[in-house]
Structure formats: structure tokens, C-alpha cells
Nucleic acid binder design. Structure first.
Lengths: 141, 141
DNA sequence: ATCTTTTCATTCGTATGCAAACGATTTTCC
DNA sequence: GGAAAATCGTTTGCATACGAATGAAAAGAT
């Protein structure tokens, strides 16, 4: 006799639940930092940490596709938060760096960003939060 | 004396890790079910479960915005997997239901979908998998 | 030193994802 | 029953996402 086939319930699948958890996170993000998208913030954060990097490199650091990265950088440049220049040592590379305005915006966004993380994990106890982050790390790319 | 400010590390934030875990999941999904997107599959799954539902209702069931849902349904209709009709009892509503082709495609997609869930959670032990799903449920919308 | 392979940035096409505004309908409430 | 509020589907605009193709430049191999 075959095992009773468990019904396939969309709501119980990892993918669906991860999507919902992420949706909630994005809503919280938009409330704390309305003027930046999560991707724009991620780019600013890495640029602040690394200084001048090539566009593709920044994409790798922030887990963004090259095509996606270009769009993000274009929009950040339009807002005046980043500046680009050709890499003298490699004519293919486009170096990206923070402007002064970009540094200021990022510095001002870090405290709200901490609050976003805190509120996103709010439904969990401290122990659960730590465990969740550990499990996520195992499931990351 | 103020507490030593922990540096803000993008890679340690929930949002960033959730995004990466989700990226990996989407890659796995595309490998197992190349002809359907996760959203299209979710819509088919709910339609299979619920029968005929209004477009907005389906959006709620699958955690999709009304504008997003319309796009998904349009594409599924174009492929011949769903059919739409006006709701006789409410002229505003657009009833959506699976076609025969839609039912077949969905039925054929369920086994790979189970494999997707399994592979996505693969890096975790059975105990960790259960815990992860529980924690996700607490963080869902 | 040339030939091959990579890498880099860009572009195109398709698919989410959501806010906001819209007209058309229902529902609600007095 | 009629005005006000809510719901439904649609459209527009903006911002990811990513595969695939392209041209230019650099790296590697022989």
C-alpha cells in the first residue's frame, strides 16, 4: 500500500512562507526608510564599507545581477548619492563611489535600518532570532 | 559610557539573508519547473484547490497585489491555463478558473514542486526544517 | 605575440511587486 | 431609497529581478 500522499498545501511550502515573511519585512522597511529602496540602501551600505568599487563587483557584494545593479546605480546617481568614473587601470570597469550627500544619507539611514531589523524579528524571542539567522545562513546562496 | 556600537553589517541583517535564501530557492524552482514562474504556480495551486474565484480573491489567497495578480492571470490566460468569465451575481467581479490544460499542467507540476521544497530545505536537518518553517510562520504577514 | 577565454558594462525582453488614481458597481447606513 | 463608503478590476509609473545577447577590453594559454 502506498503511503497516504500528503496533500500539497501552498501555504506550508518554504517558498511561499519566505515570500510572505519577506513581504512583511519590505513593508516595515518602507515605513522606516521611505526615500530609499532596500536595494539602494544595500548598495550605499557596501559602498560605505568598501569605498570605490566596480559596478559588477558591487553587484556581487550585494547579491545583485549586473543588469539589476546598473538600474540601482543609475537611480542613485540621478539622486546624487553616488558618482561614477572610468577605472584608469581597466577601461571596462566603471568605478562607483559615494558622494558627500550619499555618505550623509547613508549615515542617517543606519539607525532606522537597525530598527527595521529589530521590528522584523520582533515576533521572535531573542533565542529564536539567533536561531532564525543561523538557519537563514545555511540556506543562503 | 555608551555601549560599543556594533558595526552595521549588511550581511548579518535579516532582510539581506532572507533575500539570499529566497534567491537560492527561486533558482531551484526555475530548474525544476522552467515553464512556470513561482507566482503562476501559486495561482494554479490555489485555483486547483478553490475552483472558481474572483481575481482579487485569488490575489488575497496567494498574497499578491491586485495589479500583480492581473498580470499573472493575463499571462496564464494567454497560455491557455486559466479562463475568465464575468460573475453573474456581481458585475465587478471577474471569475477565474482552471482550464483542462491548466489542471494537467498543475498536476504535472506538483511532484517537482515537492522536490523544490525538499531541495530548498536540503541544507537543514529534519528538525531544523520544522523549526525554520515554524519561525517563518511567526514572521509571515 | 596571437588566439582563446573571461570579464565588464549595457541592452532587451519578460515577470514580478506595489502605490496611487480611476470608473463602475455593491454595500452600508441612516 | 438615496447618499456615503467600500470593493472590484484596471491602468500608470517606478523599481527590482534575471536570462540572453552584444561589443569592448583584459587575461590566459601556447
Amino acid at each position: 500500500m502506498p503511503h497516504a500522499d500528503k496533500p500539497y498545501q501552498l501555504h506550508d511550502q518554504v517558498g511561499f512562507r519566505m515570500r510572505q515573511a519577506n513581504q512583511r519585512h519590505l513593508t516595515i522597511f518602507a515605513r522606516y526608510i521611505p526615500h530609499l529602496t532596500p536595494m539602494q540602501f544595500a548598495a550605499l551600505s557596501k559602498l560605505d564599507e568598501l569605498g570605490a568599487v566596480s559596478q559588477n563587483d558591487l553587484g556581487r557584494q550585494t547579491a545583485m545581477d549586473a543588469a539589476t545593479m546598473k538600474g540601482v546605480i543609475d537611480r542613485l546617481a540621478r539622486k546624487g548619492f553616488v558618482a561614477t568614473e572610468a577605472d584608469p587601470s581597466d577601461q571596462r570597469r566603471l568605478l562607483v563611489r559615494l558622494t558627500e550627500a550619499g555618505k550623509d544619507i547613508y549615515a542617517a539611514a543606519v539607525p532606522p535600518a537597525r530598527a527595521i531589523t529589530e521590528e522584523t524579528l520582533g515576533p521572535l524571542t531573542a533565542r529564536e532570532q539567533a536561531r532564525f539567522l543561523q538557519l537563514l545562513a545555511k540556506l543562503a546562496l
